[in-house]
Each structure stands twice: as C-alpha cells, then as structure tokens.
Design a protein around this nucleic acid. Structure first.
Lengths: 226, 226
DNA sequence: GCGGCCCGTTACGGTTTTGTCACCGCAGAG
DNA sequence: CTCTGCGGTGACAAAACCGTAACGGGCCGC
C-alpha cells in the first residue's frame, strides 16, 4: 500500500487532500504541519510520494525540499509542490530544483489525486504489492520467501500461492473448493487430499507459528496472526 | 541520448518547443504533424517521452493517446499533453487516462522543458550514457561489456540482452516466459533449455559473482547485487 | 575452405516438488 | 459411548524443473 506524506500547516487543505485521496484508492497517509516534522517523517517512514506545501511556518518549503534531496534516503522520493503563489517564477524554481510536479492553489482535488496516482504508477511500477505484510509475516513475491521473525523461509511456488490466498484475508475462512480452484485450477467438486498435504507442509515450514493456519472442519482453512 | 517525439500540427509551436529543448540539453527530436504519423514514429522509433498536442487534424489527440497505451511497445512511454483548451474537465480526462502531465497553452517553454527533464530523469534514471550501473556491476551498451571490479568482461549479444533484462530491475524475478519473449522473441509456452544454457554461460563469466543470478524455482531468475 | 566463435538444441542426471494413497486419530453427532 | 467421516500424517513414486556437457549448424574473418 503506497504511503503518502502531506506537508501543510492548513488543516482544511490536509483534510481536503486526505478525503479525496482516500476516497478512490487505498493509500496510507502521513501528515506533517511543519518542516522539521516533515523531514523526520520522510526519512523514517519513507513515503512513496510527498505532497509539499511551500508555505510553511518556520522553515520554508523550498528549504525542506533541498534538505530532502540531500539525504540519500529521500533523494529520489517524488515530490509534488503546492503553493498559494501562482507566480511563474516560483514554479520554474520548484521544477528546476527537481520537483516532480507543481500545483497552484486553488487546485482541483481530483487533479491532484490523478497526478499522485500517475506518479506512483510510474515511480514504482513493481510496487503493486511485491511484499505482503500481515502481522509478523511478510511474503516476498519476488523471492518466493516468507520472512518471519528475521528468518527467511523458502517456499515452493505452490506453497506460496496457497499461503498467499489465506494471508490476503486474515481471519476469513477459505473454503476447500475455492482454494483448489485458485491454487490448482481444479473444479469445485474434485476430491483430493492434495490440499491437506500442502497445508501440512506449510505448517511444518511455519514452525511454531504453524497453528496460524486453523482448520475449519467441513469448510476449509483460515489464517490468522497468532 | 533521450529521444523526444513532438506531435503538433502548428509549426511555430513545434519550433518553440524544439528551440527551448535543444538549448539546454542534448535531446534528439522527432516531429509528427498528425496522429497517424505520430503513432508510426512512436512505435518504430520508441521515443523516451512524447509531447502530444490534443488538437490535431483528422485524428483526435485523445484517440492517439489511447492507441499508444494499447500497444505494448508504447504502453509505458511517458506522455505530456498540450492543449489550447484549458478546461478543467479535459485536464481530468487526460490525467485519468494516464497522461503523465498536462499543460494548457499558452505555456512557458521553460516549464515544459523542466517537466520533460524531470520526467525523463524519473523514467530512465540510467539514461545519460549507454552505461547502466547497478552495485559493483556496470553494463556498457555500446561495447557490450560488463565492468566488474576493474575487470572488463566481454559478453556476447545474447548474453548481454539477457543480463540487461535482469539487471534493469534488481531483485525482481523475471519469469522464464518473459525472458524468452524479451530476449529471443519466443512465445510464452515454448519449452526450451536455451535460457538455462545462457544463464549458465553468464554465471561462468561472472565468476565468483555468478551467484548474483538467483534461480527462483518454477518461476524464473532474479538478479541482485551480491 | 578452414578454424573459431556464437548459438540453439538435445540428452542425461540429480534434485526438488507434487499428487496420491493408506492408515490413523479425533471431533462431533447421535 | 460409539460410530462415522473428515482431516493429519508419513511414505512413495511420478513429474517437473534445472544444471550441465556435448553436439552441430551458421556465420565471419582469414
């Protein structure tokens, strides 16, 4: 889930942005009301995009921006600048410094949202959830590995698909038929012990977390963060 | 050298853009005056960014854009839309379709140039030379050589293409089918050991760095900076 | 034509993965 | 408590997958 940092000292603008962003997409929002807070959040939480109002108390927005660009952790984080001042010169300055976009207030919230979306899509095309987190578990789609308490556990392709199905919706019981269809492409009504076997193998690999996979007798299986 | 395609039927505007772009940076320019020409150029010459005026004779700019997005060759080419019409709704439509930027005429040529520059920097960070860097590896597209710890390793054309595919996105698993398609143009489902053979040859050439190419069983291969 | 390089293919073998089966324990209904 | 059917478990054999060596054809410079 992409993380967005909004830096603005006007609460109503933050609200406006937040409402519009959250309405259509699933973003995680961080908010900062001044430069120092912004820098701290940006460097510790590593947002995927930063929306930066240039009009800030104490520290100027451009100063914040330069500071961001100097730190390796935030050097290449996309930044969209907002400003009440619509003067061309400022815009040029902002873009010259390397801002990825520049909007003058009043702006259309929908436009901002679309620009954020397009920017995100271009910046991390591989994001799309290459790592799935759930409690102490994190699934790495690329390495086909499960990270758990610092350890990396190798999973086979099938095991991975199976675990993914369950971990995607923790606490929800996945019916046998659905799992067979999703992982193996089998039809609903086929009768096989394959599923059981793989569940067992998964539980083994999960070690003492094996009981995170709960059996729902007569229905299917259920995953929950132990 | 980044290639830019300018699509506009007004000569003076093309001129304006061209002069401003060429002044500060070294770009290669392509020009098209209508939709068909634009599509043809985009798909054969593969520009790094497209500047598209929406007001075109015969074929509407938005139609051109949709057509671009449907072809795999131009699907992810950044597009900046230009328009004389400054209506908000049009802007929203353009952005909604996935335009990377949208400027209303009259625009500041300098602003356009900066936006192009920033977009290019984000799109292909490894541009600016035919050398691709990744950790201790650096690939020279012209010489077909891999530089590693001071040594220059000769690669054959195929080996180079293959390594390039993987090194472009470190840590991301490249599926067998995708590699076969990208490097050899084979269809997905073909079964061959050619890929394996070349992976082996690459690993040999990489010497003790050979394990930078990790096999993800049942999926494909994955490169990471060891 | 000759030799060398590059490339795709093939065959083979080792290892991992996977599906099935038989057997067993146990939960839940009666 | 007993019975029954579902799920757990371990073993096993087939299949899938990958690494590797070797082969032969095409291409090019000489």
């Amino acid at each position: 889930m992409p993380t967005i940092l909004i830096v603005d000292d006007e609460e109503d603008i933050r609200e406006l942005i937040a409402v519009n962003l959250l309405r259509e997409e699933d973003y995680k929002l961080l908010e900062a009301v001044n430069g120092l807070e912004a820098l701290h959040l940006a460097k510790t939480r590593r947002p995927d995009v930063i929306i930066l109002d240039l009009m800030l108390p104490e520290m100027d927005g451009l100063t914040v921006f330069r500071n961001l660009r100097e730190d390796p952790r935030t050097k290449s984080t996309p930044v969209i600048m907002l400003t009440a001042r619509g003067r061309l010169e400022e815009k040029i300055t902002g873009l010259e410094l390397g801002a990825d976009d520049y909007l003058a207030k009043p702006f259309s919230p929908k436009e901002l949202m679309l620009r954020v979306r397009n920017l995100l899509r271009r910046t991390n095309p591989n994001q799309g959830g290459s790592v799935i987190e759930s409690g102490p578990f994190s699934l790495d789609k690329n390495a086909l590995k499960l990270h758990l308490e610092g350890e990396a556990i190798d999973l086979t392709a099938t095991e991975f698909k199976l675990l993914l199905c369950m971990i995607e919706s923790p606490g929800i019981t996945q019916e046998r038929g659905d799992l067979l269809k999703k992982v193996w492409g089998y039809s609903d009504l086929i009768q096989t012990r394959t599923l059981d076997t793989h569940i067992k193998r998964l539980r083994e690999k999960l070690g003492n977390h094996g009981n995170s996979i709960e059996t729902v007798r007569g229905v299917g299986y259920r995953f929950f963060e132990a």
